[in-house]
Design a binder for these strands. Structure first.
Lengths: 154, 154
DNA sequence: ATGAGTGCAAAGGCTTTGCATTAGG
DNA sequence: CCTAATGCAAAGCCTTTGCACTCAT
């Protein structure tokens, strides 16, 4: 409801639901209450969440969580994030949150969002596209993680 | 034996075995023939390999591969790399190969090494350390992947 | 001889899938 | 009504572990 405007290319928080509904409709899927619950939880978290965290917050069945997250992933509104532990994490796509990167805790697997200056971002992206193309690789996007120790594990 | 000198901070290829032996000894482990086979395979590959690839190349039992890779990881000479598929990949540590990043194929999971100009690397590292610290995160290192489509999948 | 390493098979743990039931259009 | 979604339980799949055997010191 409030405080979402510090994201770079994000849609306004109040429009997230509408955006998600549109994306789901586009692939012939409904915006059910469970899917709404997941989106609400992810929106509030402002960071990638693990399945246990999502289940605790939404009360969904495990299989429903996995299945709906897959649907939301196919709709392009959720992405799967890799941490250092054995759990997958899920967050809203950059269409919604704006481009950002992650800090992952090597000790507990906690993941938080982080943003770097646009100038460095652009330089980096250009350099990556260049070296990738030289290797016959067609770049879609880049992933950048800070690996380290989080506040609570220090 | 030849052509390893283009790595940035790498040890000479001929010294890898010696380096690995030293690292293993330091943690009270032996440099067995299976471990030597894994190191040889990873050295030749010049890119992160999956377990099936390692097994095919070395003929090891699956459990031996996993166990020895864990030992080599603890010795600091092998690192586990995340791709887009369900398989873990393993490669020699940057102590041996020099600092680099990865291009991962979103279609088949193939991973190859890639390097970016030092200047950008340093800028990036400084920026990351800065924003991480501001968030109470102690950065150990960064991970940077190009995600896209590899030569064979285009 | 003696402890580490090896390989086979079984178990673990996250994720996916089958199936009967429920709910939304 | 009728298809999609849900939840429980079971199955899958990568990875780890138990255990007996082998090898190196």
């Amino acid at each position: 409801m409030s405080g979402g405007s510090h994201h770079h290319g994000s849609v306004d928080v109040a429009d997230i639901a509408h955006h998600v509904a549109t994306q789901l409709t586009a692939i012939g899927q409904r915006f059910t209450s469970n899917r709404r619950a997941i989106v609400t939880t992810l929106t509030a978290a402002q960071r990638p969440l693990s399945i246990p965290e999502i289940l605790e917050d939404t009360g969904l069945a495990q299989s429903s969580a996995y299945r709906n997250l897959t649907v939301l992933e196919n709709a392009g509104v959720v992405v799967r994030v890799t941490s250092t532990d054995e759990w997958a994490r899920f967050e809203l796509s950059e269409d919604i949150t704006g481009h950002h990167h992650h800090m992952v805790c090597h000790s507990c697997g906690f993941v938080d969002d982080v943003r770097i200056p646009d100038e460095i971002e652009h330089e980096l992206d250009a350099a990556l596209a260049r070296v990738a193309a030289k290797a016959g690789f067609q770049m879609a996007h880049h992933r950048l993680d800070v690996v380290g120790v989080c506040k609570s594990c220090r």
